[in-house]
């Protein structure tokens, strides 16, 4: 009987793991607009080293201005047109490329992507470096031109009413348990 129980527990555990593990397949609905993509550049850096490439992607985070130049990061992943908060399907990790560019060109990007924003989509052209001598061996693109393909915008993530109800309900239960636990000594059995 005990053996049967052990086998049943094992079967339930394995099945549970498989059900839990049924992750949504990385279905990149947008796909990268680039040839080569950032993934291809990282996979075969030697093949593209020192070659001029055109690269399009969502400007992420910020432009870090260093003198008359700036660092920007362009993502050409599944979220470069629409992010998860706006309802994009999960499509794997972020993927993109670091770009070293004139600060004056970088300033043309008005919105950078983060939780509250879908960044502007920019198209740059420049030389790809598998290991840049100027930047301590970083893999980057030294761009000489930039064109805004799509302007950035605010991304909305409104509170879902269902979640709000759960939050209120659970908070009330937690509060009640806390009060009961605190006052147990006054009325509860030892």
């Amino acid at each position: 009987m005990r053996r049967l129980a052990s086998v049943l527990i094992a079967v339930v555990l394995v099945s549970g793991a498989l059900v839990l593990g049924g992750c949504r397949v990385a279905d990149n609905p947008e796909g990268s607009p680039n040839k080569p993509t950032s993934a291809e550049l990282v996979d075969a850096p030697k093949a593209w080293d020192d070659k001029t490439v055109t690269f399009t992607g969502e400007a992420i985070g910020e432009a870090m201005v260093r003198g008359d130049k700036a660092w920007i990061h362009l993502n050409d992943d599944a979220y470069y047109i629409k992010n998860v908060e706006e309802g994009a399907h999960l499509g794997g990790y972020n993927s993109g490329m670091a770009v070293w560019i004139d600060a004056s060109l970088a300033k043309e990007i008005k919105v950078f992507g983060d939780y509250k924003h879908e960044g502007g989509v920019a198209k740059v052209s420049g030389v790809f470096n598998a290991a840049c001598a100027e930047h301590g061996g970083d893999m980057d693109i030294h761009a000489t031109s930039l064109e805004i393909v799509a302007a950035g915008r605010d991304a909305q993530d409104p509170v879902k009413p269902g979640k709000l109800m759960w939050a209120i309900g659970l908070a009330l239960v937690a509060g009640a348990l806390y009060l009961v636990d605190r006052s147990w000594g006054q009325w509860g059995p030892t």
Binding site: D157, P158, A167, A174, Y178, D181, W184
Partner: peptide, 28 residues
Amino acid sequence: QEWDTAVDFVISMSACFIFGFGTQLVCR
């Protein structure tokens, strides 16, 4: 002002407290 995320954390904190205070009550 990330309201939806704030709601996520209220749910999660409450779940932790329900478990925690619940076990404190049951396991005396």
